[in-house]
């Protein structure tokens, strides 16, 4: 390798507080950086950066961004197999979207999903990761159990939850019935809860699906936060403990600030996921995709139906543009929020 022991020594250097968190021991131990070749260094750094990014950028431009523009471009035309026969509509589809009540329903549903799923995943994901960090016995087993839903294929998840939610056979309603009998016998009839239709009811279906999404995606969040928690050098905690901090202040003043970049990732990714919610909704609403009276319909699912069940790919592309703009705005706001909270 030729890098020698010097490198090894550096790799094994302890973490040093630096600019991130000021602990008492975080004094600068590494000497001043040489700034003499600043210009050449900066150019060199940039050249390295572009070299590293060359293949990925070709990939993104050619296989991600260019196809996206093609999809956007489609939204200006009526769809036809033969590109020469696609009729230019300009903003036609965008005008149609304004009057499309099914799309409006999908939009409201999607925002509601995001409003439920994102906070629930953040709180539960972080909470479970913290708990998993405490336990030492059966640790891998516990982790596997909390990760199990994430590895279960979507069709199987939908099938099992469909049965659990079933009005006439589901175990949730079995429990409600037992519960009601228990309280009725004890003369407390106001505690009785009737069996619920869950997925079969337009007012409950969206929440029932959201529960499944949170349940299934939780493993993802837990793993992210576990990795994030491991990234916090133990010495920060040790230092704070020497100062006599209790667990809450450790969490509030060490864990949370240091987890900020990871939380930014978690929140932004789960928001993007929620706004593009598709798999769970397709699989779980059995009677008709999109739920009774479109109660679980999402924008992504609506787009998919328009494209592949109705062959209206131009209109579907316009819906994609809408979804893209929506997600872009939300993400930029979130990025700004998280980058403001901690300055490096």
């Amino acid at each position: 390798m030729g890098l020698g022991d010097g490198l090894k020594a550096i790799t094994q250097l302890p973490y040093l507080g630096g600019s991130q968190v000021q602990t008492k021991r975080g004094q600068e131990q590494i000497g001043a950086r040489p700034r003499r070749f600043k210009l050449t260094l900066a150019t060199r750094e940039a050249l390295w950066a572009y070299a590293f990014l060359l293949i990925p950028l070709i990939f993104y431009l050619f296989l991600r961004i260019w196809p996206a523009f093609q999809a956007f471009w489609l939204s200006l035309f009526s769809w036809h197999v033969d590109p020469a026969q696609r009729e230019f509509l300009g903003a036609g589809y965008y005008r149609d979207m304004l009057a499309d009540s099914k799309l409006h329903r999908a939009l409201t549903n999607t925002l509601l999903y995001a409003a439920i799923i994102v906070p629930a995943q953040l709180v539960l994901g972080l909470g479970i990761a913290l708990l998993l960090n405490v336990v030492t016995v059966f640790r891998p087993l516990f982790r596997a159990i909390y990760f199990a839903p994430y590895v279960t294929p979507a069709a199987a998840v939908a099938w099992v939850w469909g049965w659990m939610y079933s009005e006439n056979f589901g175990i949730i309603n079995n429990f409600l019935i037992e519960w009601s009998i228990f309280w009725e016998e004890r003369g407390l009839p106001w505690l009785v809860i009737d069996p619920q239709p869950f997925l079969g009811d337009p007012d409950q279906a969206l929440f029932a699906v959201a529960v499944v999404v949170v349940w299934k995606q939780l493993g993802f969040q837990v793993v992210i936060f576990l990795a994030g928690l491991q990234g916090i050098p133990r010495m920060y905690y040790d230092a704070a403990k020497i100062d006599g901090a209790n667990s809450w202040s450790l969490f509030r003043y060490v864990t949370l600030p240091l987890l900020n970049p990871v939380m930014a990732f978690s929140v932004i990714i789960s928001t993007i996921y929620a706004l593009q919610l598709f798999d769970e909704v397709v699989n779980i609403n059995f009677t008709d995709q999109g739920g009774p009276l479109n109660s679980t319909l999402t924008i992504a699912l609506y787009m998919y139906q328009e494209a592949f069940a109705r062959f209206r790919l131009g209109y579907a592309a316009a819906v994609v543009v809408l979804l893209f703009v929506l997600i872009m705005i939300v993400t930029l706001v979130q990025l700004r929020f998280f980058s403001k909270r901690v300055e490096y």
């Binding site: 469909g162 079933s166 056979f169 059995f286």
Partner: peptide, 11 residues
Amino acid sequence: GVIDFVPGTSG
């Protein structure tokens, strides 16, 4: 009868 008595598209 009821809709969705047995869950599933082909319930």
